[in-house]
Design a protein around this nucleic acid. Structure first.
Lengths: 352, 352
DNA sequence: CTTCATTTTGGGAACGTTACCAGAGAGTAT
DNA sequence: ATACTCTCTGGTAACGTTCCCAAAATGAAG
């Protein structure tokens, strides 16, 4: 009896079957007030029996709200961003919304294209990791939005959620100090890139705060890939000045590269050289030794971004910039220096 | 001039401004035939100037097509499924569709809930990795769908896309044979699980086809986690009967565990023991040695699933079951047995 | 029994688009 | 000039809701 016309029943069918007007049926189904208990019960029973399902399209067209949220990230297949997406999706589901996901591949054109698609789909709002330099495309979007990730810094006037790099670096350096490593070498990203500048600046500030001369830290650079980390580590070890006992890498992939390099060079990690990463990617757990790292709150960035966006949609959000704390993940690539394994000329006795 | 009423312009505004009826404007904007070139040009110019954007909601309500596709996978944060999602998303974008993503967490209730959301959002179709045992929820969905992944086997009557396990195992065993490993030990998943049964059956068949007695292959089992793989490898080495020179694991995580175990046991990989994985997760690249593995065509499953779904939506798809080939990824955990490094009692000279 | 307040109901008008059909021109052949 | 075909156009009716307002029913108080 449910589908006489092989067409899914509309609210009009339900109203007719329940012997009420579509207005009353609508009220009953959206459990609004001012509908007699008897009518409501009637309508709900009929709807249940007919397998009625509200047409969300019509509802949206009328009310202007779609219950859909757009998410634009650089790459859904990247573990970090996948984790962010998962967080956003969980929170969206909790709030009864659905998530439209797009990957920009760090490409401004594609980003603009996705933004257009979002607007056309009439999403209620969007969470975006902006790629475009010119802020035009982002602002022009004309819908409630929350930015995520570090590139959000370029758009100071928009609310955003990111990880607290300063706090993360602080944890890292503190833990390194506890292990006796006061002057870790740094593996940074390519120069001129925002991420590198920020990481380096934060390390610098923290060193100053701890009374360490930042200029004494050896620095090498890579491009955030494993291979570049491997080569940077080799260069670092090759330096004559000072034996390297500890490396703090700006991301996990380079840290993994460093661990590989140490193995190739016949040095033990962590006994000879400690390695600390920054990111918290799952792959770090499978290295040997497991990569100790400062993990960014990827999933929380997604959930918090969605929470903020909800406020933005409701209009209750005044500008806010949320920085979520990183946390330390101990896995075994950090140790007190073990001088026994090193030839005398490589020993370094300044550690506490 | 674009937004006199601070409201986005509708097709009626455009039509009025262009001095034509909304019918003509609609035809021009959806570049339909039977509209004078002059009118079309006029309308398009005005639309451009006003920043007009078609309301996809209204369009969908009328036409019955939303241009949205649902994707339900177990976990968006899982690298394999993230890769599948990425493939689906790319193909969707290529076809001008948008992707609604949901994670079921291998939970039938959540899956049912997501399917309901999809129906309510009036998606044109869905790509699903089914979790529910009872086929009811899936069939009841009542929208065009394509299943992906191995669990699709349970729903023989629906079209599906999966990886060709048989072919993948064949490549793996062939390559192992080329390295002189004719009787690899097997690291399987938990008994009774579909995935294990299938993997084991395929290995069995291929051994028979190659003239090897399947019963001679040592077998251990784990639960697809790294730790279980580590323990299984230790048990394997501990077996008295026969020295193990090669392990074929049913997934990459267990293979990574095996590599960790070998290091702990003081055995060299690959010189003493070769390890072959199955999956192709990115983390395998960062192990030492890099994990050689048979990679499933994750991204292709997504793209092909979307391609099939498009046909299903158009009604041009008759039942099909697509199996996509796996490919071999050489990374360094495979080698010819190097007897020199082993104590005499562990040597095993039957290899070619 | 009236009056008034309150709850409940129904009828229409949106929302912005596309589908359909009939009519208006324009051009060509009889 | 008439008839006919063609291309183009405009009006109207959907699509399935929700929102608004007025009408009807109910109940309480005078």
């Amino acid at each position: 009896m449910a589908d006489r016309k092989s067409r899914s029943p509309t609210i009009i069918d339900i109203a007719a079957a329940a012997g009420v007007s579509k207005s009353t049926a609508a009220r009953a189904l959206s459990n609004a007030p001012n509908v007699a208990e008897a009518s409501r019960k009637r309508v709900l029973e009929i709807a249940e029996a007919y397998g009625y399902e509200r047409n969300h399209l019509a509802r949206s067209l009328r009310s202007g709200r779609t219950g859909m949220i757009g998410l634009v990230i650089p790459d859904l297949a990247n573990p970090f961003w996948a984790e962010v997406a998962r967080g956003a999706q969980d929170e969206a589901a909790r709030r009864g919304a659905s998530l439209l996901v797009f990957s920009s591949d760090w490409n401004a054109d594609r980003e603009a294209q996705h933004l257009r698609a979002l607007r056309q789909a009439r999403v209620d709002g969007a969470i975006i990791n902006p790629v475009a330099d010119g802020s035009d495309d982002i602002h022009r979007a004309g819908l409630p939005m929350v930015l995520i990730g570090s590139s959000a810094e370029r758009f100071a006037q928009l609310s955003s959620v990111g990880s607290n790099i300063a706090q993360g670096v602080a944890i890292g350096l503190n833990r390194l100090a506890e292990f006796g490593h006061l002057q870790p070498a740094l593996l940074l990203g390519p120069p001129n890139r925002l991420a590198r500048v920020r990481f380096q600046r934060v390390v610098h500030d923290h060193c100053v705060a701890r009374g360490i001369d930042p200029a004494t830290l050896p620095v090498e650079e890579g491009d955030y890939t494993v291979e570049s980390g491997r080569r940077a580590m080799i260069r670092l070890i090759g330096r004559a000045e000072q034996p390297v006992r500890c490396v703090f890498a700006a991301n996990d992939l380079m840290a993994l590269g460093a661990i590989l390099a140490l193995r190739d060079l016949g040095l033990r990690c962590p006994q000879d050289v400690s390695v600390l990463g920054f990111d918290g990617i799952p792959a770090g757990a499978y290295a040997a030794p497991g990569l100790t790292t400062v993990a960014k709150p990827a999933r929380a960035i997604g959930t918090e971004g969605m929470a903020l966006l909800t406020e933005a949609i409701d209009g209750t959000l005044d500008h806010r910039r949320v920085l979520l704390d990183c946390h330390f993940v101990e896995r075994g690539s950090l140790a007190r220096p073990d001088h026994a394994g090193l030839p005398p000329e490589m020993r370094n006795d300044h550690a506490a």
